[in-house]
């Protein structure tokens, strides 16, 4: 079944709408991004390289990748489990679970950071116990990870749920009737069916995890070279009137976002047929 391609706009109203949309995208997305690059290279390539190869910048980049490398797999596993539960079983409170899953989307990142201070800070519920056992959570790596996990919690699950609902359970039931065991069904039927949506969700989750500012700002402690992630490092540089370095480092973060976007577009382009085929089931 082939959908008829939309026509090129002809009426003046349609052309005006299109022109406005393009203008708006140029104004709020393209212009600021171009400006980042322009400011980053304003004084040439050498200051740019110096800014991104400085030890504090390198450690911020490493820390950001490390936090994402821990938080994203956790949320991928959680996302698959949650999507599986929600789309394969009927249970009481499913609607509630779905709503709670969306909470991090609507919650201000300040709160997503502050809750961990209230739990694990020196005067938080578990503060005294943690201190007595010399365990550091906030103002250290674990705090950065849990704050990021909370903020990026829904990304994978929210990608999987609509697809898995669409696909239904026919193939899995067929596999079970043919004698497949639980993990066989998961690895040979479910996972192959959702792999591209999963990859897509993981990409979005990674981009968000690396870019998170608000929540990690609260739990970071801002120790240079130790607990400053890339977004926090950029803010510090900017506040120090170090504009070139701030924008140079920002260009790395923007670069990571653009790579993510390209991967996502490639996925959609390469596997559009397959994704559409799954949806037809």
């Amino acid at each position: 079944m082939k959908v008829k391609a939309p026509e090129a706009p002809k009426s003046p109203a349609a052309i005006a709408l299109l022109a406005f949309a393009l203008f708006w995208i140029a104004l709020v997305i393209v212009l600021p991004l171009v400006n980042v690059l322009f400011e980053a290279f304003r004084t040439g390539v050498a200051p740019y390289l110096a800014a991104i190869l400085e030890p504090d910048a390198i450690s911020a980049i490493k820390l950001t990748l490390l936090v994402a490398a821990i938080a994203v797999p956790l949320n991928a596993v959680f996302g698959i489990a949650a999507a599986w539960c929600i789309t394969r079983f009927e249970f009481r409170g499913k609607g509630l679970l779905l709503s709670v899953l969306d909470l991090p989307f609507t919650l201000s990142p300040v709160i997503s950071g502050l809750v961990w201070i209230l739990l694990f800070g020196a005067h938080g519920w578990f503060g005294a116990w943690l201190d007595a056992h010399n365990i550091r959570i906030v103002f250290a790596l674990p705090g950065l990870v849990i704050a990021t996990v909370l903020v990026t919690l829904p990304f994978v699950a929210r990608e999987l749920i609509p697809l898995m609902l669409d696909q239904g359970t026919d193939e899995e039931i067929a596999a079970v009737t043919l004698g497949a065991r639980g993990w066989d069904v998961f690895f040979r039927i479910t996972l192959p069916n959702i792999k591209w949506a999963l990859t897509y969700g993981v990409l979005l989750c990674t981009a968000r995890a690396m870019g998170e500012f608000g929540a990690v700002s609260i739990v970071s402690g801002h120790i240079r070279g130790l607990t400053n992630t890339l977004p926090l490092h950029i803010e510090v540089l900017y506040n120090e009137y170090n504009t070139v370095a701030a924008f140079a480092t920002a260009s790395i973060l923007a670069g990571l976002a653009i790579v993510t976007l390209i991967l996502k577009t490639l996925l959609e382009w390469r596997f559009a047929d397959e994704l559409a085929a799954h949806r037809r089931h």
Binding site: H123, G127, R224
Partner: peptide
């Protein structure tokens, strides 16, 4: 040496909350 910089009041608050 490790350095942490921020608004004075905010920094004091972080130490109260457990920044070592």
């Amino acid at each position: 040496f490790n350095q942490s910089h921020g608004g004075s009041g905010k920094q004091a608050r972080a130490v109260v909350d457990g920044l070592k």
